[in-house]
Nucleic acid binder design. Structure first.
Lengths: 195, 195
DNA sequence: GTCTATATCCAGATAGAC
DNA sequence: GTCTATCTGGATATAGAC
C-alpha cells in the first residue's frame, strides 16, 4: 500500500467530496430538499459554485449520492433492530418504529427517498439499485417473521409508509402515529394468517 | 334578479377564472404540479402572463383554489359511496377503493392535496378549512361504521394513505395495492374491536 | 382588459484566465 | 483547482401605454 502522491491527492478529493455532501444535507435541512442551491452549497464549503464541478458531475449526482446514502443508512438502521422470530409481533413493531424514527430524523432525507419532492430529478440506475437492495433485505427479514406472500409484504410496506407519512405530515415532532405501531404489527400478522 | 351590466361582467369574469383553473389542471397534468408556470398558463387561455393578474391575485391563489376544489371533489366522491352500516367491511373497503381511485385519477391533484410537492406553497387558512371540513365528514362516516376511537381513525387514515401512496409510486396505472383494500378493511375492523 | 417592456431574482452550467 | 465573468434560461410580478 504505497502512498504515492496520486493516492494522497485522491484521498483529499474524496474528503472534500464528503464535505460537500455533508453540507448538502445541512442545507437541505435548512432550505428543503428541493431548495438546494449549488451557489449556497459552494459557499457553505468555502468555494464558489463552479469549483464544485471538480468534485461532482452536476446537481443530479449530488442527489444521487444522498439518495443512495439514505438507503444505506436505512438498511443499517433496520439491521440493528432485533429480529426475534419467536415474537413476530414485537419484531414487526420494532421495525415499524425504527422506520418511523428514521423518517422523523430527517425530513429532507425522507422526501428525497420516498416522495417525488424534487421535481426534475429521478434517481440514476445505480442509485436506484441501492434502494432495491435494501428492499430485498427487508422482504427477506419479513419472510423470517412468517410474512411470505407478496400481498402480505405489500400490506406491510403500505401500512408502514402510511404511518410514517401521517406522522411527518401531521405531527412531525410527536408520536401520534408511531404509537400505533404495535396495533399495526398485530393486525398485519393476524391478517397475514387469514390471507 | 335583475341582469345589470355589472352582473354580466362579473359572470364573464367568473367564467374566465374557471377557464384559467381548468387550464391549470391540464398543465399540471402535463408538467407536474410544481412545474406550473404562469406564462404557459396564460398562453393556454389565449393571454399573456400579466393579464392573468386581472383574474387571480397571484400564483398561490391558483394553488389554493385547486387545493380547495380537490377537497370538494373528494368529499363528493366519498359521499357517493354506499355506506351500509350492516356490512362495515364492505363499506370500509368501498371507501378505501374510492380514495385510491380518486388519487389515481389525477396525480398532480394527489400531490397538491397530500404531499408537499410544491416547495414554496402552503394552503391558505381558507383553503385549509375546506380540507378540515372534508376530514370531519370522513370521521363522521367512520363513526357510523363503529370506528370511534381516535386511534382507530388514525389507523384508517394511515392505512388508506399508505395504500394510495404505494399504488401511485410503484404501480400508478395498476391495482397492486388497491386490490388489498378488502384485506385492509377486514384487518382494521378486526383490530378496532381489539383496541 | 390586455398588452409590451421591464424589474428583480434565481437557477445550473461552462469558458477561460490565473 | 479555483476563480471571475458569462451564457442560457427560467420564474413571478409590476408599470404604464393603448
Amino acid at each position: 500500500m504505497a502512498r504515492t502522491p496520486t493516492d494522497i491527492r485522491s484521498r483529499r478529493r474524496e474528503q472534500t467530496r464528503s464535505e460537500i455532501i455533508a453540507a448538502a444535507w445541512w442545507l437541505a435541512e435548512r432550505d428543503g430538499i428541493a431548495g438546494l442551491s449549488l451557489r449556497d452549497l459552494a459557499v457553505e464549503v468555502g468555494m464558489r459554485a463552479p469549483s464544485l464541478y471538480t468534485y461532482v458531475e452536476n446537481k443530479a449526482a449530488i442527489y444521487d449520492e444522498m439518495f443512495a446514502a439514505g438507503y444505506h443508512e436505512l438498511a443499517e438502521v433496520l439491521h440493528e433492530v432485533e429480529l426475534d422470530v419467536g415474537d413476530p409481533i414485537s419484531a414487526l413493531e420494532g421495525r415499524i418504529a425504527a422506520f418511523i424514527d428514521f423518517c422523523q430524523a430527517s425530513v429532507p432525507r425522507y422526501q428525497l427517498m420516498f416522495t417525488r419532492a424534487v421535481p426534475e430529478w429521478r434517481p440514476s440506475d445505480a442509485a436506484y439499485a441501492v434502494s432495491v437492495k435494501t428492499y430485498e433485505r427487508m422482504t427477506h427479514d419479513l419472510g423470517r417473521l412468517g410474512i411470505d406472500a407478496p400481498e402480505a409484504v405489500d400490506l406491510v410496506t403500505a401500512v408502514t409508509a402510511g404511518l410514517a407519512a401521517q406522522q411527518l405530515a401531521n405531527d412531525p415532532d410527536g408520536d401520534r402515529w408511531r404509537r400505533l405501531g404495535r396495533d399495526a404489527a398485530e393486525m398485519i400478522l393476524a391478517q397475514t394468517r387469514r390471507m
